[in-house]
Design a protein around this nucleic acid. Structure first.
Length: 451
DNA sequence: TACACGTGGCG
DNA sequence: TCGCCAAGTGT
């Protein structure tokens, strides 16, 4: 056993010296650079990380720079990378280093482990790569490589297995070469001992690989399957501004915690299921899965005749209840799908007009009459309009299509105070605000179609 | 322990 | 097409 372990460590290290890739975070051992790279690489491929890493280090070259930056800027730099709490935790960690360690990342495993966003793996990676301390850094690669080489059949999805493998990995670290050895282990997993069809024939430790000797290189490691993601159909409002907000759309910032925390998005809500005769039926129509733009022609039909009217009403009512604002979905515009690890979003995106809120009931009535007289509300849409009269809080909306707003006499349209977190933005504002990819795609479609 | 937490690439 | 999975952490 001792022979097999010694062989493994020595051969692997030799192999690494020859085959290690040139990567941006391997320019030097600056603990900050190592730290940032390790956070970005969590659950994320090398090729995906590289451009983000370059940009990030360019913008935040030091712990101090990161600590002092506005959080929104950090998030924007992370836009598209996913797992956004990593970015917030990283910055929180940077601030801890500035506040508690005189802006120097401590050469101390316990101190490093205490930083936000640093768990067992990252602690080991930073301590070994940056400080060459003999700490194990066990990630998915390492668990796979060790499971195969030592023919271990424990479920690597279980935390206990990771802890056992940490002890094993630590015992393999050659004297004075912790950083290189840990990286070699991961490099082998990434380049040779891959999840599917491992390249055993080019593997530097093949001859003593216990898993392969038993013919189990393709069944190891053992890993229980993850639960399949649940499906959510969501109604999205692409609300177009009028008056002083012409050319802009209404967006909002997500809550501080949870899914896509603090990212910006289009207003949307979970579609409620309609129950009919004992079985649940979605109000939406079955459609294609990927992003699909709905042609304008299909949307011009009368609202009451539209099969989408149920969804549009739900969207209008739901947003009114949530925000106090009234919007008027006009027609289904596109569909999009977004797959998280635990949720699948099926999005129905509706173009919508913004209805400004008036306070006095008489004014509401007067305005409504004005709109009717002006022929601005088609007869067939009247029923739809009336739906708004029973909206929560008895709010009633003037029809805020730009030409309508301009023609309404009597009480001036007031600047409607937006609820906290809501904002009108144009394309140029996308440079500052961080959006998750789904909404980047939708808004990208929108701006490109419009201009 | 189990789940929340993004996104893209690949066979 | 689709399931798997990638340098995990926090709760």
């Amino acid at each position: 056993m001792a022979d097999i372990k010694l062989y493994f460590s020595e051969e692997l290290l030799s192999w690494f010296h020859i085959h290690k890739r040139t990567l941006p975070w391997r320019q030097n051992r600056d603990p900050y650079r190592v730290w940032v790279s390790e956070i970005m690489l969590q659950q994320t491929r090398v090729d995906t990380v590289i451009p983000y890493y370059e940009r990030f280090m360019d913008r935040f070259p030091t712990v101090t720079a990161l600590a002092e930056a506005p959080e929104a800027e950090v998030l924007k730099c992370w836009e598209g990378l996913g797992y956004y709490s990593r970015a917030r935790n990283l910055q929180a960690g940077a601030r801890e280093v500035v506040d508690n360690y005189n802006s120097v990342i401590p050469d101390d495993a316990d101190a490093v482990a205490g930083l936000k966003g640093i768990g067992p793996y990252t602690r080991g990676a930073v301590m070994s790569i940056a400080f060459n301390r003999p700490e194990p850094a066990v990630d998915g690669n390492v668990m796979r490589v060790l499971s195969r080489y030592f023919c271990l059949e424990d479920d690597i999805a279980k935390p206990r297995t990771r802890i056992q493998l940490e002890h094993l990995a630590k015992s393999l670290i050659p004297e004075g070469a912790a950083g290189d050895f840990n990286q070699a282990l991961m490099e082998l997993g990434a380049l040779v001992c891959t999840p599917k069809s491992p390249g055993c024939l080019t593997c530097p430790v093949m001859v003593h690989c216990q898993g392969r000797l038993v013919g189990k290189e393709n069944v190891l490691p053992i890993k229980t399957k993850a639960k399949p993601p649940r499906e959510e159909r969501r109604l999205v409002a692409l609300i177009e501004g009028s008056g002083s907000n012409v050319g802009k759309v209404l967006v909002r910032q997500r809550p501080e915690t949870g899914l896509l925390a603090q990212m910006w998005e289009l207003p949307h809500l979970l579609e409620e299921e309609v129950v009919q005769e004992g079985k649940a039926i979605k109000t939406g129509r079955g459609r294609k899965k990927k992003d699909t733009i709905i042609e304008e022609s299909s949307a011009v039909m009368g609202l009451s005749a539209s099969p989408d009217s149920g969804q549009m009403e739900q969207l209008g009512r739901g947003l009114a209840a949530e925000t106090g604002l009234l919007i008027r979905p006009r027609h289904r515009w596109m569909e999009a799908e977004h797959i998280f690890s635990h949720i699948i979003w099926k999005l129905d995106v509706f173009l919508a007009d913004f209805g400004f809120v008036l306070k006095e009931k008489e004014i509401q009535q007067m305005q409504y009459e004005t709109l009717l007289q002006g022929g601005l509300v088609a007869a067939e849409q009247k029923a739809e309009y009336n739906n708004f009269e029973t909206a929560p809080d008895q709010l009633f909306s003037g029809y805020a299509a730009s030409e309508t707003a301009a023609s309404v006499s009597g009480p001036e349209q007031q600047e409607v105070p937006l609820p906290a977190g809501y904002r009108w933005i144009g394309p140029e504002d996308m440079r500052e605000l961080a959006f998750p990819n789904v909404f980047l795609r939708i808004l990208g479609n929108y701006w490109s179609e419009r201009y």
